[in-house]
């Protein structure tokens, strides 16, 4: 119990820094808050994976989560669209708000939530269907297109925005699994865009890709920022530095530090952040 309190205490002390930073950032970004997380704790059975995290995500910004393996960054990300619901033993407490609405409210429809908060996974996971069907899957589910021509438009615009249209426009009926790894991942991004979410969560989207495919995805993230709020988990600190506006450093289930990306990498406030980004551990 006392241990628990202690941890809460450390987090709060770290938060004091954060709040200052966030205030300064909010002032410059002048964007409304999209996601608010307060005192989020996640348990796998008796194991606590996340020890009370407070964090805000602003509209149309890219936030990167970094940290060593097992630090809880992916777990926390999966809380944001309740993907952890699919794991039986997983339990989430605390409060996460999307546009001032608590997403863990029992009256909230998780299907609606996931349409609003899309997700791109670590390994490209196109359905074993045609490229067209892969994109059309979500819009069909949510009834976004009345006519076939509407659906065609959604498919085309999604593929265009994911920068894949020119590569696949002549083979929309071929299986999505036949594309290269980088193309598959962009297909998955296009699939997510097709349901017009507001937030896109990316769980190490480039970890299975080669450097060229990675750089294409990174450029894509930069463009998507215009229309979407993006939260990205990455193992690669250079990637976080390249694509994100703000970076959050997680360690052992705690949020150690969050701040403007260039500031966090050049001038970390916390000793543990500094140790991690300079390669002392992780």
């Amino acid at each position: 119990m006392s241990n628990d309190k202690l941890q809460t205490a450390t987090v709060t002390s770290a938060d004091i820094n954060d709040i200052k930073l966030q205030e300064s950032l909010a002032a410059t970004a002048a964007q409304p808050v999209k996601i608010t997380a307060r005192d989020v704790k996640v348990f796998y059975g008796d194991n606590q994976a996340i020890h009370g995290i407070d964090l805000d995500v602003y509209q149309n910004e890219v936030v990167a989560f970094i940290g060593p393996s097992g630090c809880g960054k992916s777990t926390f990300l999966r809380c944001l669209n309740r993907m952890n619901d699919t794991i039986d033993i997983c339990r989430v407490t605390g409060e996460i708000k999307l546009d001032d609405r608590n997403i863990y409210d029992p009256t909230l429809d998780v299907v609606q939530l996931r349409a609003q908060v899309g997700m791109v996974f670590q390994k490209p996971n196109p359905f074993p269907k045609s490229i067209y069907e892969n994109i059309a899957y979500g819009p069909k589910l949510h009834g976004l297109a009345e006519k076939k021509s509407d659906l065609d438009d959604i498919v085309e615009s999604s593929l265009r925005r994911a920068g894949l249209w020119n590569e696949v426009k002549d083979r929309l009926n071929q299986p999505g699994t036949g594309l290269s790894g980088g193309q598959q991942q962009r297909l998955c991004i296009a699939r997510t865009i097709a349901v017009s979410p507001e937030v896109i969560l990316m769980d190490e989207p480039c970890s299975a890709l080669d450097p060229i495919a990675t750089s294409i995805i990174e450029e894509l993230i930069d463009e998507l920022k215009q229309n979407f709020t993006i939260v990205i988990v990455t193992h690669n600190m250079q990637q976080a530095a390249r694509v994100s506006d703000r970076t959050a450093f997680f360690h052992l289930g705690n949020l150690i530090e969050i701040g403007a990306t260039n500031e966090l990498f050049t001038n970390p406030k916390q000793k543990r952040t500094e140790d991690y980004i300079t390669g002392r551990y992780g």
Binding site: T86, A115, M119, F121, K123, N125, G138, R191
Partner: peptide, 18 residues
């Protein structure tokens, strides 16, 4: 069938039976 496929579908807002 890989869990990734299920996650992909659930992540797009499909229900379990869908």
């Amino acid at each position: 069938v890989p869990k990734a496929l299920r996650d992909g579908s659930l992540g797009l807002g499909a229900t379990k039976s869908e």
